[in-house]
Design a binder for these strands. Sequence first.
RNA 1: GGGGGGAUGCCCGAGUGGCCAAAGGGAGCAGACUGUAAAUCUGUCGGCGCUGCCUACGGAGGUUCAAAUCCUCCUCCCCCCA
Length: 375
Amino acid sequence: MTAIPRFPFRVTHTDGAARAGILETPRGTVATPCFMPVGTKGTVKGVAPERLAAAGAQIVLANTYHLSLRPGSSTVRDLGGLHRFMGWQGPILTDSGGFQVFSLMDTARVDDDGVTFRSVYDGSLQRFSPERSIEEQQRLGADIIMCFDECPPATASVDAVAAAVRRTTAWAARCRKAHAEAGGLGSDGPQMLLGIVQGGVDAALRRESALALLELDFPGYAIGGLSVGEERGPMLETTAATAALLPEERVRYFMGIGDPQGVLDVIERGVDLFDCVLPTRTARMGTAFTPQGRLNLRNSQHTLSDEPLDPECPCTACRTFSRGVLRHLVTQKEMLGLQLLSEHNLTFLSRLVAGARGAIQMNSFAAFRKQWIGA
RNA sequence: GGGGGGAUGCCCGAGUGGCCAAAGGGAGCAGACUGUAAAUCUGUCGGCGCUGCCUACGGAGGUUCAAAUCCUCCUCCCCCCA
């Protein structure tokens, strides 16, 4: 099989199934486990690049579906490529648009060759295929790109999930080929292409999916198709079982988890990377992550609170404002409130994950987990 | 001085005899959010001893089986003419 870019990844420590590692990309090193903030349209909503860095982000996401429609991948390329576009010189990962097949299902039609969408921007008919997704991702120029997959909802029947697995496998081969034909190069340098394991919470289908993708020899693998409405228990079992099927020396990416407990749960099961809109979205809705759990700042009980959100947190919100003031900013829909809480939640999560990494290095992850979550 | 319009629940505002504790919006209160169609969505939103009762549509009277809705007077507000 044609050689394609493979950024060096090594696991430096393990603690049970949990791993600490280092991924070296051309634009910088990612210490894993690592949470990746999501910047769908080329911006992590409400968080300027320097604040993102201050919040501990090492690598950020962007979305191929959205950027290919607005402003268009050629425009992004012509404006200097995705890194300049986002004002972020660190590593970037683009999602393939596969998730939009799931989240925009009402307006999408899937067939073996690809997906026909109705653009959410102007209603125009759009066609996405594995080749098209790779081509768009090449033009965008992220460092890590994803195979175009099919992500069925938790309510899908086993047959539908099986069909999605087979389609995802076939599409992965086509993505792999399209990527290789371009020499693994995007408009702005080498790109590492990751495969995505599907299969819902069905052990046999997960296995089928993983084994098929292993044959395609990707430099890293994502666990997709989870966090789509299934129960936590089966989700975690599936994560553990899937991670166990993947090569130890390749990076593992759980797609779409961002609540503090969930993050520790997947780290415990051998995941290195994960992303989620939850911290930034809930922040925009007025909810802050704290060591004591989620805090809804809109609640009237905080009106007169003079305490910081989290006295230990170094973020702007916690250093500068009381809960009472933050509540005011949130309830009055002041932009600053959304920005501050977004920065805070990202800071909280990266500190949590950094702590987990340190604990894995010292072989004390179980104790660390207990300290944060209890039990 | 003359003519006209209006006063509705915390706010704005619909309703012009029964289906009205009264549309809709806002505010308030609470909940959800997990590879972002999301600064979004959902619920609640007079009181109580809550399958019913009480209070309520500027105030006071009246007509009617029944009034936020019709009549009379009063109070206040707005507009036009002089």
